[in-house]
Write a protein that binds this DNA or RNA. Structure first.
Lengths: 115, 115
DNA sequence: ATTCCATTTCGTTATTTAGCGAAATGTAGA
DNA sequence: TCTACATTTCGCTAAATAACGAAATGGAAT
């Protein structure tokens, strides 16, 4: 019961839904997501840990970067089974589409400099 | 975006998941649900309004009783499309099954007396 | 009209959550 | 080893949430 409620709670925040939709396009690091959502890195890191705990995403360390990607159906069948539905519901939204276009041109190294 | 996050938020509370599973068996009034969940009527009433707002249930007034039932696929296709998945995930749980057996023998008039 | 009683709304409290910035962590490269 | 820098953890604050009991609402029946 608890784990299932947890799963839905992970999906109950608009910023976390945006993150999932972005990860459908490609794996991303914390600072790329921060740049698009305009949230502090620490906030994004927390959102990612909630999504990870609920089985939606997996992190893969690559040097000092951490790539976050969607879990596969093998890794987390229950969580992943919800994604097509979510995509259908959110695909039309302006905000989601605007996130997608930002994703295409984003450059990790440029974006993530503290400056 | 917001309405979709709302929908998942409605599913993020264990007591609301129990309510949905109970309503799969039959329509129920506030005080029947209160008796099974062991929560105050006002608390259950609030949970029901959240589920209603999110499209999962519909209330039908019958004199001074209010019967709460699951929405149909016609009334709320998006919300209702999630229910089979939820059933699959929760059907095994002891708590859910124990709720079901209580439902069979429950008598609205006996249960709901203030006494 | 008045009473009864299921339900909803209101007011309150305790807990959880989203957000931030600052400090801690850990890896790559100088 | 030391520095740089992406990430995570910590401490905090403001807002949201779940719970309760008491008061308000509204239909049925006397």
């Amino acid at each position: 019961m608890r784990p299932i409620a947890e799963r839905f709670k992970a999906l109950s925040d608009p910023n976390r839904l945006r993150i999932l939709m972005m990860l459908k396009t490609k794996p991303l690091c914390v600072c790329e997501i921060s740049a698009i959502l305009r949230l502090a890195n620490s906030t994004v890191s927390k959102h990612l840990s909630i999504l990870r705990q609920a089985g939606f995403i997996v992190d893969e360390k690559d040097g000092r970067w951490v790539n976050n990607r969607l879990a596969t159906a093998q890794e987390s069948p229950e969580a992943i089974s919800l994604l097509p539905q979510i995509s259908t519901w959110l695909g039309d939204e302006n905000l989601i589409q605007s996130d997608q276009t930002k994703l295409v041109t984003i450059d990790r190294v440029t974006i993530c400099q503290v400056d």
